[in-house]
Amino acid sequence: MQCIAPKPAHTRPERQARHSFPGLPHQVGEARRWALKTLTSWGQEAPEQFPLVVTELATNALDHTHSGGAGGQFTLRLALHAGHIRITVRDAGPRQGRTPTRRTPNLSAQHGRGLTLVDALTRAWGPLKIGTGVWAEVPR
Rank of each mutant, 00 (worst) to 15 (best):
V54C: 07
W34I: 00
R140W: 04
S108W: 14
P139Y: 05
P22Y: 00
K37C: 02
H81D: 10
M1C: 08
D91S: 05
P127V: 01
Q110R: 15
T55C: 04
H64Q: 15
R98G: 03
R140K: 15
N106G: 09
K129E: 13
G29S: 14
E14Y: 13
L36W: 03
I4V: 13
G114L: 10
F74T: 00
R95L: 15
L121T: 07
R123E: 15
A82I: 05
T75R: 04
N60K: 06
G71V: 00
G29M: 05
G72T: 00
G93T: 03
A35M: 04
A35H: 03
G71E: 02
V28I: 14
V138S: 09
R123V: 10
A46N: 01
G112E: 06
I130Y: 02
L52C: 10
P139T: 10
P139H: 14
S108R: 14
H111G: 15
S20M: 02
H26M: 06
I85E: 02
T88Y: 02
A5S: 14
F50P: 04
P25G: 09
T11W: 11
R102H: 11
D91Q: 01
K7E: 07
L107A: 11
R32P: 01
E14K: 15
H26I: 06
L52V: 13
H66F: 05
H66Q: 03
Q16G: 04
E45M: 12
A79V: 03
P6G: 09
W125N: 03
T99P: 04
V53Y: 10
D91N: 11
G131D: 05
Q2M: 09
Q49G: 09
L36G: 02
A124N: 11
P47G: 06
G68W: 01
L62F: 04
R103T: 14
T99E: 13
